[in-house]
Each structure stands twice: as structure tokens, then as C-alpha cells.
Amino acid sequence: MLDYIKGFIELIKGLGITGKHLGMHAVTLQYPEEKDVMPERSRGVVVLLSDKEDGSLNCTGCLLCMKACPTAAIIIDAPRGEDKKRVLKKFELDFTLCCYCGLCEEACNFSALKLTGKYEYSTGDKDDLLWDVNKLQDVGRDVDYEDKRRKKVAKKPAKPVVDANAKVEDKPAKAVEIKPTESADDTKPKTEGEA
């Protein structure tokens, strides 16, 4: 009998604990209206970074990130031009494959890409997850980063790279209307034509 009374008291205690929480404020957020602040180091979507001054791409097409990627989510096409410098023709990131491990960012010596705290890029169409260079650059334009590139390449401002970037740079206005895959194809002839 005593056990039942004890048990009953324990049951009341349990109610007390959950009852206490009734008065507490909720710890959750009302998501689309309220948003959590993402920490600086958050590894969200990958973006391509642009030069802080002239807005051109930092990427040199060195393929290091592509080689470091464990899931082969990065597709780069950067054949060597006449002066043995690589020309970035295609940079695509397949977010259906990306595992957000951050190895590409660590492999990059030119501060060309970064995993950011951005995350609201879900889509109903799987094709939209294959981002081309324009989209990657556009999303990354407002991203602040520590430029580790200057020390190494400041002496020779790799000319072909800047050229290639300039062309890509003109794109964004167009890229908004054109579908990502098409615009990626668009880049091709132009880059070649001017190179």
C-alpha cells in the first residue's frame, strides 16, 4: 500500500516538472519570420568568391578543389590556354552530391570558394541544384572573407585569369533570366572567342 502512495506522489512530482515547463518561454523559433544567426564558420552552400576590388572571380581553375572533393561534386573545365595558363571555362557545383565537408575550401590556395552560412536554397526541381559559375558567384558576392591570395599571387596578377573573369563578370544580369545550364553553355563560346 505504501508503495502505491509513494508512486502516486512520484506521479504528482512528474506532473509538477512538466507543469513547471508550461510557464517557460519556448526555445524554438518561428522560422521564416525569426531566423537563427548562423555562426561565422557555418558550412552551408558553397559559393565562389569575387575579388574585393574589381569584383572578378578569384578562381584560377587550378582544379585543387575538384581533386579534394570526396564526392566529386565539383566539375571544372579549365584547359590550358596558349600561355600555359588555365582558363576557367566551366565551374559547376552539384549540390545533390555535395556533402558540405569543407575540404574544397581548405584545399583552395586562392580564396576562391567558401562554405557560407547561407542555406535557403531548397528547390522543387532537382536540376536547379546544379549551380553554374554565375549563380555561384552571384550568391557569393556579399560574402566577406579573409583574402589569403595576395601573398602568393600579388607579384604576377595572372593575366588570363583576369580576362576570363571579366567576361564572366559581365554575365550576372543575363544569368538571371537564362536557365543555369544554358548560361553555362553560353559562357563557352564567348570565352573561347575572346581568348
Binding site: T18, H21, L22, A26
Partner: peptide
């Protein structure tokens, strides 16, 4: 609502 607040959620909002 009660369950939500008890679990420090909002419940339907």
C-alpha cells in the same frame, strides 16, 4: 498548445 508549451515549443501558430 498545452503539449507545445510543456515541451517549450509553440504548438500551432
Amino acid at each position: 498548445k498545452v503539449a507545445g508549451h510543456m515541451q517549450q515549443r509553440f504548438g500551432p501558430m
